[in-house]
Write a protein that binds this DNA or RNA. Structure first.
Length: 383
DNA sequence: AACAATATGTTTACCACATGGGGGA
DNA sequence: CTTCCCCCATGTGGTAAACATATTG
């Protein structure tokens, strides 16, 4: 799956966001809103398992394309988590792209690596992979992962890197990619986070008296208004949705928030939204603009950088293949050795009569034997 | 600009049968 | 509670047909 191969095939030439904690370049996979920090997986697990309070920090994935901003939406068709600007860039390209079904990214509370390790990668858990768990009062122990959690390619590529580091005998790519297919079927709502705004601990910068305006120019929205109004929007994403609708192309605007501060992000979004609806009778909330009155202008990706990222992303998306998941290698082996007529399975007796072949039992055939001998299918995985 | 015809790309149904797993003895 | 056996839904791949979209006249 090329989608998650940012690092696998060389990755972006442009540097991704470094981890704010360990400062390792280009490794940030999640964004913690409470800390306003970009973190790699290991630092995320380290920091947010430290205590109960930290474990309740909301985090979102980093945009797959620019890797510079928190993801705002997940595109089902692309199976990619995108920030508002990249979403606008990619999905404003043509009418087909505009029809892509997108859902807002929901924040998660589990350590990023434990989410997947406890679900798609039980293998890791079995190996004692150091996924920490929340305190006993946080009911996340064996919750199935939300599809949106796994769909993030940044996370996937980084998990893969960690898997490789975990041991040479780990066929993590097979395991992970096999599971990835199932995560392309997004299914809301999020079972992990069923109630909106449950985290009163995390500083929320939305002014409760100024809910996002329900009146939105939906005709050009890149995703449905309902998403903007959903519970998820309580995390400043209502404003993002709004700005999203007005940003015809961030290539022109260059609105990739680069500051390590959610307030900066909110500021840019809020500002654009305000600009858009300045004449509206239902003005948008200023969101966190007030918190940014003293902040320096957010550093932004230059237009060419963004364009390059988007082009690369589109190329990768075009070449992406969703490979079929083989659950039973033994059945695959058998199917490949079975006789066919015009592609369809044929009765063995018919074939034998027609060709007058004296076939050995299926697993006695040379082809089957050779196939079984292939170590790749030596073990039939059971789930 | 609107429409039809053609080309190209994508999805789906079909087939037989060993296997896996549930359920009963 | 464990073991054994039976039965049936499941899954497997290559091809053609159906369908969708893009291009051309």
């Amino acid at each position: 799956m090329g989608l998650i191969g940012n690092g696998g095939d060389g990755g972006w030439s442009l540097a991704a966001k470094p981890c704010d904690s360990c400062k390792s370049a280009g490794s940030a996979a999640v964004f913690c809103r409470a800390d306003s920090a970009f973190l790699c997986l290991s630092c995320d697990a380290k920091i947010h398992c430290a205590n109960k309070l930290a474990s309740r920090h909301e985090r979102v994935w980093v945009c797959e394309v620019c890797e510079q901003a928190p993801a705002a939406v997940t595109c089902k068709a692309d199976a990619a988590a995108l920030c508002v600007s990249c979403d606008a860039d990619i999905h404003s390209a043509n009418p087909l792209a505009q029809r892509h079904d997108r859902v807002p990214v929901e924040p998660f509370f589990d350590p990023a690596d434990s989410i997947v390790r406890s679900s798609s990668l039980n293998f890791f858990a079995d190996r004692g992979g150091g996924a920490c768990h929340h305190d006993e009062d946080v009911d996340v122990e064996v919750e199935p992962p939300s599809p949106w959690v796994i769909s993030n390619p940044n996370f996937a590529s980084k998990i893969m890197a960690e898997a490789v580091a975990a041991g040479p005998d780990v066929k993590s790519d097979h395991l992970f990619f096999s599971e990835m297919d199932s995560f392309l079927d997004f299914d809301y709502p999020n079972p992990i986070h069923p109630s909106s705004g449950t985290d009163s601990v995390v500083p929320v910068k939305i002014k409760p008296n100024n809910p996002p305006s329900p009146v939105i120019n939906s005709s050009e929205n890149c995703f449905d208004i309902d998403f903007c109004r959903s519970k998820l929007s309580s995390f400043n994403y209502g404003a993002q949705c709004l700005s999203h609708s007005v940003s015809s192309s961030s290539l022109d605007v260059g609105v990739v928030p680069d500051g390590n501060s959610m307030s900066e992000i909110s500021y840019s979004f809020g500002r654009s939204a305000m600009n858009q609806t300045s004449n509206s009778s239902d003005p948008l909330p200023s969101v966190s603009a007030s918190t940014n009155s003293n902040s320096a202008p957010a550093t932004q990706l230059c237009g060419l950088d963004r364009e390059a990222r988007v082009l690369r992303y589109r190329e990768k998306r075009k070449n992406r293949k969703f490979e079929k998941t083989i659950r039973y290698a033994s059945r695959k082996a058998y199917a490949e050795t079975r006789p066919r007529i015009k592609g369809r399975f044929a009765k063995r007796t018919e074939i034998e009569t027609e060709t007058d072949l004296d076939l050995d039992p299926i697993y006695g055939s040379a082809a089957a034997a050779a196939f079984i001998a292939d170590s790749q299918y030596g073990v039939v995985p059971t789930f």
